[in-house]
């Protein structure tokens, strides 16, 4: 068996040349295409992965939003409830204030009405009392009482100062005085009265007697600008006025209290 050294050497060189040739014409272009395709595939895969991750992120975001919806709803409901509670409290407070105000007004009005009713009642009672007293006094003999009260009236005129007396009358002579009396007096009483008044005024007096049963008892001296009253009618009127004033003050004090 013989090995040809030249053949061995040439075949080794041939093989190395073939390695270079195939590397140049086969492996390099094919591997480049494969690498480029893998890069393209990887890029597409990366884009798909990015799109998938974006979709996943969107899905997660939507899921989070969907999960957060009940909480948001509860929060809104709670806020609405709180707002309604606050508004209700405000309305209740306002209604309470208005009710208190209305109640206060009603109480005041009731109190006023009660005071008015009471006052009317008292006035009515006073009127009744006055009428009763009037009826009782009218049945009593009024002659002596009227004379006594006529003396008081004359005394009252005499007690006035000069200026006050001049203020009662005009400068007409004789001084016109109308004498209203509850019961007819004697002529002597009338003359004496004329004399006392003439003395008081220092001038003659034209006395005009007139009967006025409404005076119950007593007289009224009507001057030009004023009247001097000394009668039970006047007394009862003053008493009724005083009682009415007194009751009104008491009712007002009760209402304030």
């Amino acid at each position: 068996m013989h090995i040809d050294g030249w053949t061995l050497l040439l075949q080794a060189i041939n093989f190395l040349i073939l390695v270079w040739l195939l590397r140049r014409f086969l492996y390099r272009p094919v591997l480049a295409v494969i690498a480029e395709r893998q890069a393209t595939t990887e890029r597409v895969r990366s884009e798909a992965e990015a799109a998938r991750q974006a979709a996943e992120a969107t899905r997660r975001s939507l899921e989070d939003q969907r999960t957060a919806l009940p909480a948001e709803r509860d929060r809104l409901i709670a806020a609405a409830r709180a707002e309604a509670e606050t508004e209700r409290d405000v309305l209740l407070e306002k209604a309470r204030v208005e009710a208190d105000h209305a109640l206060e007004e009603a109480r005041k009005r009731l109190s006023d009405e009660r005071a008015q009713a009471l006052e009317a009642l008292q006035r009515h009672a006073v009127d009744l009392g006055t009428q009763l007293a009037t009826r009782l006094l009218r049945d009593a003999p009024a002659g002596s009482l009227t004379r006594s009260l006529l003396d008081e009236a004359c005394a009252a005129v005499e007690a006035l100062s000069g200026d006050q007396r001049h203020a009662l009358v005009d400068g007409i002579d004789p001084v016109p005085v109308r004498l209203a009396m509850a019961a007819p007096l004697r002529e002597s009483d009338t003359a004496r009265t004329r004399e006392r008044l003439a003395a008081a005024f220092g001038r003659p007096v034209a006395l005009e007697p007139a009967e006025d049963p409404s005076l119950i008892a007593g007289v009224e001296l009507h001057f030009a600008h004023s009247v001097v009253r000394r009668s039970w009618k006047q007394t009862l009127a003053e008493a009724r006025e005083e009682m009415t004033r007194h009751d009104s003050a008491r009712n007002t004090a009760d209402a304030v209290a």
């Binding site: 073939l18 040739l21 195939l22 014409f25 393209t40």
Partner: peptide
């Protein structure tokens, strides 16, 4: 060698990615 090189060169002449 000639056949393999020529075949490879011809086959790899128009390589496309897609």
């Amino acid at each position: 060698m000639a056949a393999m090189t020529l075949g490879s060169a011809l086959a790899a002449r128009r390589l496309r990615v897609e």
